[in-house]
Simulated assay, not measured.
Amino acid sequence: MSFRIRVAAIASAVAVAAIGAGYVLSAGAAEPALDKVKATVQKALGPNVEIKSVTKSPLAGLYEINLGSQVVYSDATGRYVLNGDLLDTQTATNLTQEHLAELNRVKWSDLPLDRAVKWVKGNGARKIAVFSDPNCPYCHKLEQMLTQVDNITVYTFLFPILSEDSNTKAKQIWCSADRAKAWRDWMTAKTAPGGAGTCDTPLEANLKLGQQLNVTGTPAIIFPDGTRAPGLIDAATLERKFAALKKS
C-alpha cells in the first residue's frame, strides 16, 4: 500500500495547472530563464513544497523541475507546466524515469542501519534496505516473498505512516527483546507483538529520513548501488537485480 507525502500530494494539481515552490536552484541558476521559471512557479504555489532543482531538459525551451519524488517540466516563462514522461524515441529511453532514478539514488553507506530491524538468511551476502509499515498489506506480501530468497540480509526501517496502530505496533516491535523475530512473526504469521513499546525508538528519525530520501510509498526497497524499487516486487525480479549487481 502506498501513501503520499506533501510533495507527492501536489501531483494532481500539477497535472491541471501548477507545481510547488520553496525553491533551490542547481548549477546554472544565474541564467535569466531559470530565474524567471523560479519566480513564476514560486508565486503560483507558495513556499510549502520544495523544488530541489531546475535544469534545462534535452528538449529546447523545456525545463526540468525536480520535486524530489517526481519530475515535471515547464516552459521558459514558468506559466505552462507539463506533468508526464519525456521519451527519447531513438534510444527507446524514458528520460524522465532515468533521470529521476539518478536524482533519487541513495548512498548506501549513509543509511543509518543501526536504526533498522536486521535479519539474515544464509550467508547474508546480498543486502537490501526496506522502508515498511507494519500494517501495509504489500509489506506483508514482500516479507512473505523474502522467505523464498536465500543468502540475504534485510534492514527494515520501521516507517509507520498508515495509522496510529502502525505506530503502536512499530514501537512494540522495536522494543521487543528480539526485534527481528517480532517483526517477522507479525509480517509473515500475523502474530501480534507484545509489550508496551515504551523504550526509545528511532521512528520519528525514520520518518524524517524517508522524507529526505523521497520515500513516497511502502514498501520501498533500496539496493547497495543506491537504486530503489518502489512498491512490491516478486522473487524473480529481486534475483535479477541481485544478478545485475553482482556483474556491476
Rank of each mutant, 00 (worst) to 15 (best):
N167W: 15
N167I: 12
N167T: 15
T168C: 02
T168I: 10
K169H: 05
K169G: 01
A170M: 03
A170K: 02
K171F: 00
I173C: 01
I173G: 01
I173V: 09
W174R: 03
W174E: 02
S176P: 09
A177V: 06
A177D: 11
A177Y: 05
D178H: 00
R179G: 08
A180T: 02
A182E: 05
A182G: 05
A182I: 04
A182T: 07
W183M: 08
W183G: 07
W183E: 10
R184T: 13
R184M: 10
D185I: 06
D185Q: 10
D185A: 08
W186E: 07
W186M: 05
W186P: 04
W186T: 05
W186Q: 03
W186G: 03
M187A: 14
M187Y: 11
T188H: 05
T188S: 04
T188L: 10
K190G: 06
K190M: 11
K190P: 07
T191E: 15
T191F: 11
A192S: 13
A192Y: 09
G194P: 03
G194C: 02
G195K: 00
G195I: 02
A196W: 00
A196E: 09
A196H: 03
A196C: 06
G197L: 01
G197S: 04
G197K: 00
G197Y: 00
G197V: 00
T198C: 12
T198P: 09
C199N: 05
C199S: 09
T201W: 01
P202N: 12
P202S: 09
P202D: 10
L203F: 10
L203D: 05
E204S: 10
E204W: 09
N206F: 06
N206L: 08
N206T: 06
L207M: 11
L207H: 12
K208R: 15
L209M: 10
L209F: 11
L209D: 14
G210N: 06
Q211G: 14
Q212S: 12
Q212L: 11
Q212H: 13
L213S: 04
N214Y: 12
N214T: 10
N214A: 10
V215G: 03
T216G: 12
T216P: 11
T216R: 12
T216I: 12
T216F: 13
T216L: 07
T216H: 09
